[in-house]
């Protein structure tokens, strides 16, 4: 006799979302399904034989799972997969595309600190750190991961509305010979040439040069 085959629609849009190599698996619930759906997650290292279950993402009702720890070796590539189930019904395993942490991560803008004197502004830039498992763990700057990392810096003179661009490799920039008592707004982005990765620009940090004594 035909066995009653109960299956659930598949989770959709299963993909890694990665920022500074914090690699989180995301998906959307199967179409047209209400509450009560649970999920389980597994992952595999490309080229290695087995799928590994993620215990912390077993029987969960949320639609994301942090796999940063499992995918922290950026010399490897990965797949992840999600299965949905509800009242004895379950979906297929739905996989991501192959995930390469080195090229598929998004880089945050740099941290900016700006100070000024009467006629100059000094800008210190700090590249974000790679995601790490715990605060005690040693911090690795993305500068170490991407040796070709550079900074594009934009300096806007609020009075003249003129914007200048600088491209620098080291993390400090001093712009001398500015007009006293004038507001300047600075923003910066990270630029990696290979693989081609650009962060967004930071929001503008505005500061005024000191007034002429």
């Amino acid at each position: 006799s035909g066995e009653l085959y109960c299956s659930l629609l598949n989770p959709r849009n299963v993909r890694f979302e990665s920022v500074n190599m914090k690699n989180v698996l995301h998906w959307s619930a199967p179409e047209g399904t209400g509450n009560g759906i649970l999920y389980k997650v597994k992952y595999s290292v490309y080229g290695v034989g087995k799928w590994i279950r993620k215990p912390e993402c077993r029987n969960i009702n949320r639609t994301w799972c942090d796999l940063s720890s499992e995918t922290s070796d950026y010399e490897e590539q990965y797949y992840a997969s999600v299965k949905a189930f509800l009242n004895g019904m379950f979906s297929d395993w739905v996989e991501t595309t192959r995930f390469n942490p080195l090229t598929d991560t998004k880089i945050d803008p740099p941290m900016l600190s700006v100070s000024s004197t009467e006629k100059s502004i000094s800008i210190i830039l700090t590249a974000p750190a790679k995601w790490k498992n715990s605060p005690e763990e040693e911090s690795i700057s993305l500068l170490q991961v991407y040796p070709g990392l550079q900074y594009n810096v934009s300096v806007l003179n609020k009075k003249t509305k003129k914007r200048w661009f600088f491209s620098i490799s080291n993390h400090t920039l001093v712009v001398p010979w500015l007009e006293p008592g004038t507001a300047y707004c600075v923003s910066a982005q990270i630029h990696v040439t290979t693989p081609l990765l650009d962060s967004d620009f930071t929001k503008e940090h505005c500061i005024a040069t000191l007034k002429d004594k």
Binding site: S44, Y46, G47, E76, Y79, T97, P195
Partner: peptide, 26 residues
């Protein structure tokens, strides 16, 4: 080369169903 590969990476990798084997890193 990297730009050319990035443009077709998803298409090419989707044609490789074998997850358990790697040519270069196994």
């Amino acid at each position: 080369i990297r730009a050319g590969f990035t443009a077709i990476k998803a298409n090419i990798q989707a044609r490789d169903p074998i997850r358990t084997l790697s040519i270069l890193s196994y």
